[in-house]
Structure formats: structure tokens, C-alpha cells
């Protein structure tokens, strides 16, 4: 049992570290360390470290971070890209975050619309192998997801707003330690919003980043859950007091992969960025 666990843990750890290392090269938000509190049970005050690379939980951050490939197709408005994504939450508690390890490698096609009245818009069609695990990696999901999405961005003097919406279909397996793999499939509808406010009269010091994500999951095939429909909501803010230093607040509510256990928790802490 322990050999199997250690082998699985090492493989998982290697993949995670590889993704983190390649992503961290160009990551705006490197990591956050802080204190968390789950609101469902009265027992859980936790200390957390989160590493977010290219990802808002429940939705891919299409625009951020490190890319392996990002090319334009000749003189068309089509492009293609490949980039790693990761969202890793460590600490004394697992309840402040819906999942504890989430990594992927997204391959995408993008169509960049010309500027219009609605803003700067792009359409993306993304395929990604993903790994989503709990803290111990004893219960994890491995699947391939296909996600068409639409995103629009508007930037004015001192504020920018980004809206994204998509539809995702995933097909793969659930792995539980000491058990045979089980089939897993789901669809989800992620909707995300990001707001950035900044005051360049103060240099680059004063910035506020706020992101909110709503995700509806419809699980078709999974041994782990009896329910089939799950909602998840996440709000994350970073208020930059210095160029590389911010205080942050995160709130998670709802049910999310891999365990789909009820989550209702907040955490706050310090963000180190670059």
C-alpha cells in the first residue's frame, strides 16, 4: 500500500513541480500565504499557502502567465497556443480550498475579433489534459477536457474589466488509492469576471485585482457522488500596497472537484507577486 502511495505521490509531485517551475518564470502572482477559516464546521481554522499559476479555480485564465507556444496562423486572425496551468493549495487545512492540487496543459485555438463596441473580444477552443487531486493525492481525477469559450475585455483609464464564459466537457478517470480506477465524466459552465483598478499617478504601487468565478458542474459518471449537479462560486481579491506585495482575500462557496464536498470558507493573507 505504502509503495503504491509513494510511487503515485512521487509521480504526481514530479508533474506538479515541473509545471510550477515552468510556469513560475513569468507568473504575476507567485504565491500567497495566509490564514483560513471554514464556515461549515466550527473546528477549522487553517493556515494556507496557495500557488496560482495561469488559473482561477473553476475557470482557466486564458490570458495570464507562461506560454510554451503562442503563434499566429499566417495573416489570419486565428492563433494557437499551449500553456501550463496550476492551482496548488497547501497548508494545515484542506477545507479553505475546493481542491488542493490542480494542474493541466492547455492546447488552444484562438480567434481574435477586431475591436468593436463590446470591447476587445476573442474566441478560444481549448483542449487540456488535467489532473485534480486532494491534498494527499489519494483521491484524484485525470481527464481530458474540451472547452470552447468567449472572452471580452475593456480597458479604460484606470480600470479594466474582463468577462469570460464557456462550456467544458471532460472525460477521464477517478483514481482512489487501493482501488481500481473508475470512469468519470462531466460538463461544466464556467463564468468569470475580473476587475482591475490602478492609479498610475502613484507609480505602479496602488492596484486592486478582483476576480469572481461561478461554475456549474453536471456530473454524468462518477462513483464518488450521488448528486449530479453542483454549483461553485469563488471570489478572490488582491490589494497591492507595494509593487510586489499585496494583501488578499479569498472566499469559496459550493461544491467543486475532486471530492464535491460542501465548501464554505474564507482565507486572507499576503501575496508575493512580480
Amino acid at each position: 500500500m505504502y509503495t503504491k502511495f509513494i510511487t503515485k505521490f512521487n509521480v504526481g509531485t514530479f508533474v506538479i513541480l515541473l509545471t510550477v517551475a515552468s510556469s513560475a518564470i513569468a507568473q504575476e502572482r507567485i504565491f500567497s500565504i495566509g490564514y483560513g477559516k471554514a464556515l461549515i464546521n466550527n473546528d477549522s481554522s487553517t493556515y494556507t499557502i496557495s500557488i496560482d499559476l495561469n488559473r482561477v479555480p473553476g475557470s482557466n485564465e486564458k490570458g495570464n502567465g507562461y506560454f510554451f507556444v503562442n503563434e499566429r496562423i499566417d495573416s489570419t486572425r486565428w492563433g494557437y497556443y499551449a500553456k501550463p496551468t496550476a492551482d496548488i493549495n497547501l497548508g494545515s487545512g484542506t477545507s479553505a480550498a475546493p481542491n488542493n492540487v490542480s494542474v493541466g496543459l492547455a492546447f488552444g485555438l484562438a480567434y481574435d475579433f477586431k475591436e468593436s463596441k463590446i470591447g476587445i473580444a476573442s474566441f478560444c477552443l481549448e483542449m487540456s489534459p488535467d489532473f485534480v487531486g486532494d491534498k494527499t493525492l489519494r483521491n484524484s481525477l485525470k481527464y481530458l477536457s474540451l472547452t470552447p469559450c468567449f472572452q471580452v475585455d475593456n480597458t479604460w483609464d484606470g480600470i479594466s474589466i474582463f468577462l469570460g464564459a464557456g462550456f467544458s466537457y471532460s472525460l477521464g478517470k477517478r483514481s482512489i488509492l487501493d482501488e481500481l480506477d473508475h470512469a468519470y465524466s462531466r460538463t461544466s459552465v464556467p463564468v468569470s469576471m475580473k476587475l482591475r483598478a490602478f492609479n498610475f499617478a502613484e507609480g505602479e504601487k496602488m492596484r486592486l485585482h478582483l476576480s469572481a468565478t461561478y461554475k456549474f458542474n453536471k456530473v454524468f459518471n462518477d462513483i464518488e457522488v450521488n448528486e449530479r449537479s453542483f454549483d461553485f462560486f469563488n471570489v478572490k481579491t488582491d490589494f497591492y500596497l507595494l509593487k510586489n506585495l499585496a494583501v488578499n482575500f479569498t472566499y469559496n462557496c459550493g461544491f467543486e472537484e475532486p471530492l464535491f464536498k460542501e465548501n464554505n470558507a474564507f482565507s486572507f493573507g499576503v501575496t508575493l507577486a512580480r
Binding site: K62, G63, N70, R72, T155, D157
Partner: peptide, 17 residues
Amino acid sequence: PLDKYISSDMKARLARE
């Protein structure tokens, strides 16, 4: 700053353009 005109979500698009 470039961020005044282009948000980070659109930087990959900017590179292609």
C-alpha cells in the same frame, strides 16, 4: 505602463497581433 492600455488577459493576443 502597458497595463494602462492592455490588460494582462489580452497580452497573449497582443503578442500575436
